[in-house]
Design a binder for these strands. Structure first.
Lengths: 150, 150
DNA sequence: CCTTGACCTCAAGTATACTTGAGCACTTAT
DNA sequence: ATAAGTGCTCAAGTATACTTGAGGTCAAGG
């Protein structure tokens, strides 16, 4: 079983050693051992944990929640129901988040189309209801018609 | 054209009036006018802008970037190319973000499956390579086989 | 031997995005 | 006419997630 220094792990996960120390202090790495000199040592056994942390962090889960989960991980089999529930919860949360982002993406694409056309016309005026800066709904309909067969 | 108070908009967008004031101070709302008493007034013309801000905020775009975009919006037709480029950029960024989250979701689902089975067995040990706490790759393969026909 | 490099702790600083509080103005209902 | 409700500014406080700096240990190479 190979050992890894904090510097190795920092490179592997694309963070600074300061960040890893901060994670450790924050309770995200309750599994790290120390050598005789007090230096952190990571092992192959830890790589699975780090993968989970990485996933949760990229999903913008707060450190506090990750800490809780990791505490359960090192606490042993008694916490398996809690860890299972945690995954179910995070799955639902992430699905919801993705749905929101997909709606946002659709909106950005409409706006991109809008600016492409405004740009071509040289002015946004072509879209406005007379006397306002509100987009005439007919343009939105036109866009949706052009992009429905996708 | 209807007018709306800051309180109206706060309700409509599910934020506090303090947050809206903060957004205004931060340059996100360069379009808001004031009445004789110095109170902010929002109009129907502004609703389109707020929709964009809402979308960008939900996509975790920093206020700084949103401020830049809004400045271009009020600057007039000269900034149309920049606004078009902004949308193209944000679309790409959001697509990338969604891809990451979808990969994370797949990972969480595997972990959910893992904990469902560990839970059933009463122990995580069933997954480990002997003498380690590393998951034997055969389980991952089993999971993928069971979930490939989706 | 002594400098370089990687590690350590602890404390303070930074960035972002708000939130809260103090003190004041104006409108409206009792 | 006075109290409640909504609005205002400005300053300070909070939460999260790091980042930076000071000061020190230890092992290896020239």
């Amino acid at each position: 079983m190979k050992n890894y220094s904090i510097g190795d792990m920092a490179k592997k996960y694309g963070v600074t050693v300061a960040t890893l120390r901060y994670y450790d202090e924050s309770g995200l790495l309750p599994f790290v051992k120390r050598n005789a000199q007090g230096q952190r040592i990571f092992t192959d056994d830890d790589l699975g944990y780090l993968e989970v942390i990485d996933c949760l962090k990229r999903s913008a889960i707060p450190l506090k929640a990750i800490r809780q989960f990791m505490a359960w991980c090192v606490a042993g089999d008694d916490t398996l129901p809690k860890r299972h529930a945690f995954m179910i919860e995070q799955e639902a949360a992430l699905e919801a988040k993705i749905k929101v982002l997909q709606a946002n993406l659709a909106f950005l694409r409409w706006k991109k189309w809008y600016y492409a056309h405004a740009n071509e016309a040289g002015t946004e005026q072509i879209f406005f209801k007379p006397g306002t800066t509100q987009v005439d709904p007919k343009w939105r309909k036109k866009y949706l018609a052009e992009h429905s067969e996708v």
